[in-house]
Design a protein around this nucleic acid. Structure first.
Length: 565
RNA sequence: CGGGGCGUGGCGCAGCCUGGUAGCGCACCUGCCUUGGGCGCAGGGGGUCGCUGGUUCAAAUCCAGUCGCCCCGACCA
């Protein structure tokens, strides 16, 4: 490929709207352009990266028995009404009507279509298992698209679905995907973790996410470097340090003006961990009192999961109405609503609000002084707390979710009547799994993990092209001819090349080469006339190695082998 | 949906507070020059200042509305 005839619109400066590193570099290197919030055009270099990733996806999913198909983006409302998600999902689904006023929507995912297909075509256990997949765009009206290509309203997704006769079959299909995913992300050059995740509205029995660590990520995980425990922060467990012992009888103390845990601890000279944080939450069935230790944060997702319902914090006037005291002075004593307490509060003696404005109680023992309806894990796991498996300190990291796998079970097959006859002639629902990977997120995560101040450093397997040939001065006939000859030779050797034949100053071309980040660069410059040599360097090491022109293919091959690992 | 910010040639920005008819850098075009890290000189093209309405003799500038984009939070199958 010749740069002079290619469309690679690089930018000298960072675009104003781009914040995340991958966003800035993808725009500056001419990979993508934004059409609207969360809607992107993939330019030729960006498309090549996506193609490379998709090729790896196809190879690995095919290898576990996946069969590629293509499903529609436009769906009739019926199948979504049947599964119940037409109503469960709100503004996030793009909805429209056709000319006959029939309800339609744009596909956010394809469980319904798969279940519909299976319901019509699968009859017998003899036809199972199946692994079906597609690589296609998904449409979701995201509340807030952000970080360039990391969270968009239209995005590519490799989504596969498994159909099995029973849970055991699903387990096998699930494990096959888990292994395939690890190979995929490894091949793409990503550092990643496999973490336990919340199945959420996908429903079902189990789920994992594949997470690429990066400060640009939107999710957090807790993991244990010692034993390998890893989970999304939404369900990560942790063992907080024991509550410091406290002596003294139960007594009411005046705490004028104290509103926060920090103020309370400071005022009374106790540790935050020796206090109880009392929060009133409102669930559909009414208010509940939620207690966490003063040094902990309530995780609303955990609370919602426990109550199996959406919850919201109570308004200050609701707090006063329910407990007879303002927010800063409330506590569990005497409360006439269900009390949910974090497990860290099973033991210990605490300071808690007295439900009387300006007063707190010392010497409060949960379970003794008041009745806890349910003890549960309700706190946010924090760095340094104990691993739930081995007790060693956990770490908390920001990550980009690059893939997820769900055990769906029969959540979609039952309503959509995707059933088969087993060997005894009994009708049974198909057991499903669903598995997603976002190719654009892989690309962005790779950039987040592999870049320097000057640009992208592409992992070999997903680089748009492999070798950047850079004649320093194209008006020098010998340089240009040598560069062209090298391009032909390298291509003949099976390598993908970009020849920067533009009549630009060397500095401009060097900067662009660093920005685009092809793994290997061959510079044809003054050394050619002097010694008959050109220079070969890797983008990562940036160390020029003089090589006789005739030995370039050999040298590049060696480097390629090393870079491809 | 709550909070904050920004819309001025292709890109990045100044001008706005204190109204007087638009400027800088880069990019682009022409010529000369230069060629190992975003050269130099000279000349040139390109903008209804997001949109609508209002105030005013006069609006990029003041007022109202509206649209778009970004960031934080909520949300996220």
């Amino acid at each position: 490929m010749r740069w002079s005839r290619a469309f690679i619109p690089t930018l000298r400066e960072d675009p104003a709207e781009a914040e995340a590193i991958s966003h800035r570099l993808m725009v500056r290197a001419g990979l993508v352009r934004q059409l609207a919030a969360g809607i992107y055009v993939y330019l030729p270099m960006g498309q090549r990266v996506i193609d490379k990733i998709n090729r790896i996806l196809r190879e690995e999913i095919d290898a576990i028995g996946g069969q590629e198909m293509t499903m529609p983006v436009l769906h009739p409302a019926e199948i979504w009404q049947t599964s119940g998600r037409w109503h469960d999902i709100k503004e996030e689904m793009f909805r429209l009507k056709d000319r006959n006023q029939r309800d339609m929507c744009l596909g956010m995912t394809h469980e319904e279509v798969i279940a519909w297909l299976a319901s019509r075509e699968i009859r017998s256990y003899r036809e199972l298992p199946q692994i079906w997949y597609q690589i296609q765009t998904k449409e979701r009206d995201e509340a807030r698209p952000r970080s360039g290509v990391l969270r968009t309203r239209e995005f590519w997704m490799k989504d596969s679905y498994t159909l099995d006769v029973d849970e055991a079959g699903l387990g096998k299909a699930y494990d096959l995907h888990k292994e395939a995913y690890a190979r995929i992300f490894g091949r793409c050059g990503l550092t990643f973790y496999v973490v336990e995740s919340d199945p959420g509205m996908m429903g079902g029995a189990g789920a994992h996410e594949f997470m690429a660590p990066s400060p640009a990520g939107e999710d957090e995980i807790a993991r244990c470097p010692a034993c390998g425990y890893a989970a999304n922060i939404e369900l990560a467990r942790s063992v907080p340090a024991p509550t410091p012992a406290a002596a003294g009888p139960r007594e009411e103390v005046a705490t004028p003006g104290v509103r926060t845990i920090a103020e309370l601890a400071g005022f009374l000279g106790v540790e935050p961990a020796q206090t109880i944080k009392t929060l009133l939450s409102v669930a559909p069935d009414g208010p509940v009192l939620v207690l966490v230790r003063g040094d902990q944060q309530l995780h609303e997702k955990k609370l919602a999961r426990l109550l199996k319902a959406e919850v919201r914090p109570a308004h200050p006037d609701e707090v006063r109405e329910t407990l007879g005291a303002p927010v800063g002075s409330v506590g569990p004593m005497g409360a006439r609503v269900p009390i949910l307490a974090d497990e860290a509060l099973r033991d210990g003696v605490y300071v808690a609000g007295a439900n009387r404005e300006g007063y707190h109680l010392r010497g409060v023992r949960p379970g003794t002084d008041f009745t806890v309806t349910t003890f549960a894990d309700l706190h946010v796991a924090q760095a340094g707390e104990g691993c739930p498996q081995c007790g060693k300190p956990i770490v908390v990291e920001r990550v980009i979710e690059v893939g997820n796998i769900f055990k769906l079970g029969t959540k979609y097959s039952v309503p959509l009547k995707a059933v088969y006859l087993d060997e005894h002639g009994r009708e049974r629902p198909i057991v499903m799994g669903s598995y997603g990977i976002g190719p654009a997120r892989i690309a962005a995560a790779a950039i987040e993990q592999h870049h320097d101040a000057d640009g992208i450093i592409w992992p070999w397997a997903i680089a748009p092209l492999q070798v950047h040939i850079l004649p320093v001065n194209v008006k020098d006939a010998a340089m240009l001819e040598t560069a062209e000859a090298l391009g032909r030779d390298l291509q003949a050797a099976g390598l993908e090349t970009l020849l920067d034949d533009r009549d630009e100053r060397p500095g401009v071309k060097f900067k662009d080469a660093d920005l685009l980040g092809l793994p290997i660069r061959v510079t044809v410059g003054a050394l050619l006339a002097r010694e008959g040599k050109v220079e070969v360097r890797t983008r990562r090491e940036r160390q020029d190695i003089p090589v006789p022109a005739a030995a370039v293919v050999e040298r590049v091959r060696e480097l390629a082998e090393r870079l491809a690992r």
